[in-house]
Deep mutational scan, measured.
Amino acid sequence: DETGKFLVLSLYDYQEKSPREVTMKKGDILTLLNSTNKDWWKVEVNGRQGFVPAAYVKFL
Rank of each mutant, 00 (worst) to 15 (best):
Q49C: 10
Y14K: 01
P53C: 06
T23E: 03
K25H: 10
V57W: 02
D1N: 14
K5L: 12
T23Q: 04
K17Q: 14
V52K: 00
K26V: 08
G27N: 06
Q15A: 12
N34R: 06
D1M: 14
A55P: 08
R48W: 04
L7S: 07
K25S: 09
F59Q: 10
L30D: 01
V22F: 11
K58S: 12
R48E: 05
D13F: 05
T31Q: 11
D39F: 15
S18L: 08
R20Q: 13
G47E: 05
Q49M: 10
Q49E: 11
V22Y: 02
P19K: 10
L32Q: 00
A54T: 05
F6W: 14
L60Q: 06
F51Q: 02
E44D: 09
S10E: 01
V22G: 01
Q15G: 07
K38D: 10
W41A: 04
S18A: 09
F51D: 03
F6R: 15
G50F: 04
E21P: 04
I29C: 07
D39L: 13
L11F: 05
K25Q: 10
K25D: 03
S35G: 10
V57S: 00
P53A: 03
S35D: 11
Y12S: 10
G4A: 13
G4L: 13
P53G: 02
K42E: 15
Y12R: 13
W40H: 02
R20Y: 14
V45P: 00
E2D: 13
Y12E: 11
L11Q: 05
D13R: 02
T36G: 10
N46P: 03
D28E: 12
N46V: 04
L33N: 01
R20C: 15
V45M: 11
V43L: 02
E44N: 05
Y56C: 12
S18G: 13
G27D: 05
D39Y: 15
W40I: 02
T3N: 13
G50W: 03
K5C: 15
N34S: 13
K26M: 08
K25L: 08
R48C: 06
R20W: 15
N34D: 15
K26S: 07
V8P: 00
L9W: 06
E21S: 07
V43E: 00
S35M: 15
N46Y: 08
L30H: 02
D28F: 05
L9H: 04
Y12T: 10
T36A: 12
T3F: 13
T3A: 13
F6E: 09
V22K: 01
L7R: 10
V45L: 15
S10A: 15
Y14R: 02
E44P: 00
T31E: 09
T36Q: 12
T3R: 12
L60E: 06
S35E: 06
D13A: 06
L30T: 01
K42Y: 15
L60H: 08
